[in-house]
Design a protein around this nucleic acid. Structure first.
Lengths: 246, 246
DNA sequence: ATTGACTCTCACGTTGCGTTATACTTTATA
DNA sequence: TATAAAGTATAACGCAACGTGAGAGTCAAT
């Protein structure tokens, strides 16, 4: 398929396809003698992945990094994308609810706090683990973490969300190997460093958090969406990392 | 409220608020002697509108034009935004359905056409009026219009959608006056020119289309979402325009 | 053979901020 | 009360992701 055919089929521009080729994100299967790009069905399947991830706010560089990874599993990616699309739909639902309340507010039928007026504009939805986190680490650490989150722009929040997912991806791809392998330890180190951008975790607290991933089935359920058994794998990797990095 | 307070409440950056001030989109109610920006509750309500419209893909320049318009009615705007958010949610639903099919396809359980793989990535959903349009204007005109639409990038399609909505807004604001007033005629002229970017309408066809807006209750229902009685107003404005612009 | 549509590369422009630097102001802490 | 930290201002460069236009070659339709 030539560029215009692909562009029309998908609903993007020819320039977009050129750009994706230029940055190495989507390289046509074949180039004719005249230099024309020919796209294969496989190219289209990759393009579909790109558009899903793009819709979810991932920057193209990060999409390329994901797709180029030898550990990238398309079916696991689809499962993750599905969850994120559901999250995004839930965010839209919340925005619609906020809009409905705003209409009633404008009619004088209800009062809205300023906070209520902006429900749904970012993913700062209630963290269901916050109560447990407070019990385990105290109010100060949670408030500190929340303050950091709240002090970020939407872009920063999205980037963090995407970075977090990228780490989950990487760990999921490694989970069939040993949690003590250099690759696994490298990836879990990224997780440790990532967490320390939000709060401040000692190695001991890090290991304890890993145990929580398994003890608390809500954590387990969320994490295992990225790959069955990932929560256990992460716990073991985190315990090993904590033991051997002090 | 100072910038950081607003930024934290809303989940945007301080830089964003500065930018909106710079371009005249959101001007703080008050500036202190030190030059600090102070935002009022009214500013926050405007900011909410901005964020709704931004989420719907309107460029900031266009948002500013809308908000600055003396005809801008916030409640009508909210109704329109609600509809567009519902449309966007429907698009996400379609993307999720596409993703689900993709998962089955990857398992070998179903086959997907290339077209099916990209359902939901743009708003090229089936136009329910297409059948009637074919009957009234023939296959050639509809194919031509569809081909033009399909040949556009997502950005162009979104811009057109936004431009279309902006015209509807303008007309809705004018509908309590005479359809023959210069303002109404100017706005309906924009509609005429807009339609001619998609197809090619004679003045006679334009007037006939206006009549259809009233005769066909699905048209009426869609158009009147922008303002009760707008379909009738447009029909009359279109008839007058057609009669006096040949 | 000619024309129209499609394709290529190149390069500048646009939008909406992010980021950094520098300096002033306000608030919290010792 | 003095000092440090946090918050505020403006200015300006940088970035991502294309859009847009120009010029030229290629392919398909007439």
């Amino acid at each position: 398929m030539k560029v215009k055919e692909v562009a029309d089929l998908v609903g993007i521009s020819v320039r977009t396809l050129h750009h994706y080729d230029e940055i190495g994100l989507l390289t046509p299967e074949e180039i004719t003698d005249a230099g024309y790009r020919l796209y294969s069905d496989e190219n289209l399947e990759v393009l579909q992945q790109i558009l899903f991830l793009k819709e979810l706010g991932f920057p193209l560089k990060q999409i390329k990094t994901m797709l180029d990874s030898p550990d990238y599993d398309r079916n696991e990616a689809l499962a993750m994308q599905r969850r994120m699309l559901l999250d995004k739909r839930a965010q839209l639902d919340q925005m619609i609810a906020t809009l409905d309340k705003t209409i009633l507010h404008n009619r004088g039928e209800i009062e809205m706090t300023n906070k209520e007026k902006f429900q749904g504009f970012n993913f700062s939805s209630h963290n269901p683990y916050e109560q447990e986190a407070r019990e385990r680490w105290g109010d100060k650490k949670v408030d500190e973490s929340n303050a950091k989150w709240a002090g970020m722009s939407e872009k920063e929040q999205q980037d963090l969300g995407a970075a977090m997912n990228a780490i989950y991806f990487k760990l999921a791809a490694l989970r069939h190997g040993s949690p003590e392998s250099p690759e696994a330890q490298e990836a879990i180190k990224e997780w440790y460093e990532f967490l320390n951008r939000m709060g401040s975790y000692s190695l001991e607290a890090f290991s304890g958090l890993g145990q929580m991933y398994v003890d608390d089935e809500r954590f387990t359920k969320n994490i295992d969406q990225f790959g069955e058994g990932l929560a256990v794998f992460m716990r073991d990797a985190m315990a090993y990392y904590a033991a051997y990095n002090n």
